[in-house]
Amino acid sequence: MGPLIPNGFIPDEWNNIIAIIIGLAFGYILEASGFSSSRKLAGVFYGYDFVVLKVFFTAAVIAVIGIFYLDYLGYLDFNQLYIHPTYLWGAIIGGIIMGVGFVTGGFCPGTSVCGAAIGKIDAMVFILGILIGVFVFSELYTLFEPIYDGYFLGNQTLMDSLGVSPYWFIFIFTIIALVAFFVVDQIRKKVKKVFY
């Protein structure tokens, strides 16, 4: 049955309207969880605020469990979903660069849009930075192309690359996330509070 739009249950014209609605909810949730504040976001790296980790992992766990239940019950065809492609070194190098960017800038693209929406000037500057970054990448595309297009492993899931049963993986992933929540709370108690 699902996904609805690619299977033609909902006409394609609705796609953009649904995009705006989904975006609205996305922005609302991010902002209401405190993702529009860069110091709150950066807290995850210094141990004074783990809201990023908590929101992020809760969302991932809930989403993956929900999607697999829907798939199991036949409402959603997992094979039709978009699986983020695996370009091994692209993912690693890109991730490293983004990690440095995260700590220096204190935002990621989605949260910077939220920050900009409520008037954070640093978020607006961050967005400007992203635009410049994309521009630099595109201008030097030939230089980056080997990493960008190389080491392509296909639209792989962990089931393909690790050979594990998805259900067991989700179970272990859930437990890891719960343990992480517990540990983080312990860390937070020890770290000196930062007010912002």
Binding site: V61, I62, I65, F68, Y69, Y72, G74, S165, Y167, W168, I170, F171, F173, T174, I175, L178, F181
Partner: peptide, 24 residues
């Protein structure tokens, strides 16, 4: 409340493992 919620989540995940599998 957090322990209860955590338990619910673990049960849900365990449900996926334990549900009988079938060929689609």
């Amino acid at each position: 409340r957090y322990k209860i919620l955590a338990l619910v989540l673990v049960l849900l995940a365990a449900g996926l493992v334990l549900l009988p599998k079938y060929v689609k």
